[in-house]
Design a binder for these strands. Structure first.
Length: 342
DNA sequence: TCTGGGGTCCTATAGCCT
DNA sequence: TCTGAGGCTATAGGACCC
């Protein structure tokens, strides 16, 4: 049987900020957007002190400010968090090369081939991370990624949780379905409409009912996930499939020039990234979100991959012209997919 | 006065080809 | 020549993740 660890940093962004600004320790800290709660943006991370006020990831900064006006609002500093993240990933790599990165503050480790109790490895990892970064982490240990992730979430912060194969039902069936990876607000509501709130209740549904409601692929996934079944391997190497840039205007605009200029800037930016990382792309997609949040995309596929600014910009403007801008525009975006290393 | 930005994957539909 | 089944590709939208 596999032994998988899921390492999840506790309130990562705010913890990094509290580490380098010790005067923030013990205070409600909110990291998100430009750090200005009167501008458009959402919360990336709230410190545990801020969470007491009901502030959590993904809520608008303005809302967070209303919930706790005396919180300290800081901008997202990806460069700094990436540096700390690299340090942590370096520690993890000393234990095994079988690592899957999950964003900046999470990772899976497969320690099946290490001849040591996994809880001992986990304890050592936690100690090393704290010793070298001053930050705490939570670790879940289980026979697969799905359960390891559930486990790491069970005793945050600074937790260490083991789920053994014979205790799957007793440990996860009482949890709400929303705790399952892949179940978001829409699916949660759909299931609630069917009278299903917990993972155990989900597991009571026959497979054909699930595929009927959610389609072949996702129905099968839910059937297995509710039973703690997950054979997915760790993805240790990954190539980007698309690159995108998007921006939300501080104020919605009905000026075509403003929208067009924004697309031009995003295009320049993304081509810079593509050239920097040696990728060419074949499909260009333009995205427009209106003030009522209705979102539309238009795509154009070229005959061959390119990283030419002129070619990509021309394709982007062809897409833009196919969109009818009859409402105020809130967001513009551009994506290049069909990437190939150049 | 709500609702970021950078990604992945899935589904449905439509056109084209065999 | 017509019809239909499938496969493939492109497109548009949407759910979800961190």
């Amino acid at each position: 049987m596999r032994r998988i660890l899921h390492i999840d940093m506790d309130a990562f962004f705010t913890s990094v900020e509290q580490k380098r600004h010790p005067e923030l320790i013990g205070k409600p800290v909110v990291v998100g957007g430009s750090g200005d709660p009167f501008k458009r943006g959402v919360v990336s991370t709230a410190s545990y002190e801020a969470r007491k006020f009901g502030i959590h990831s993904a809520i608008p900064l303005r809302t967070a400010y209303k919930l706790c006006p005396h919180a300290i609002f800081l901008p997202v500093d990806y460069e700094e968090y990436s540096r700390v993240s690299e340090k942590i990933k370096g520690i993890l790599r000393e234990f095994t090369q079988i690592i899957e990165d999950v964003g900046i503050d999470e990772a899976f480790l497969d320690v099946s081939l290490i001849d040591r109790p996994p809880e001992e490895i986990a304890e050592e990892i936690k100690k090393r991370i704290t010793g070298e970064t001053g930050l705490t982490s939570s670790i879940g240990i289980a026979p697969n990624k799905l359960l390891a992730k559930l486990a790491s979430d069970m005793q945050k912060p600074d937790g260490l949780t083991i789920i053994k194969e014979d205790e799957i039902e007793s440990r996860i069936w009482h949890l709400p379905v929303r705790k399952l990876w892949g179940v978001g607000p829409k699916t949660e509501a759909h299931l609630k409409g069917m009278g299903i709130k917990t993972i155990g209740e989900l597991a009571s549904l026959p497979l054909d009912r699930l595929t009927e409601e959610f389609g072949e692929s996702y129905g099968n996934y839910l059937y297995n996930a509710s039973r703690g079944i997950d054979e997915s391997p760790l993805v240790t190497h990954w190539e980007p499939k698309s690159m995108s840039r998007e921006t939300t205007f501080q104020k919605d605009t009905d000026d075509w020039q403003v929208t067009a200029k924004s697309i031009a800037e995003l295009t320049k930016d993304i081509v810079g990234s593509m050239r920097h990382s040696d990728y060419k792309g074949r499909t260009v997609t333009v995205k427009i979100r209106f003030s009522d949040f209705e979102t539309h995309t238009r795509a154009k596929t070229l005959s061959e991959p390119t990283d030419s600014l002129e070619v990509i910009r021309k394709a982007a403007f062809e897409c833009l012209k196919r969109l009818e801008l009859k409402k105020k525009v809130r967001l513009t975006g551009i994506r290049v997919s069909g990437l190939e290393r150049s």
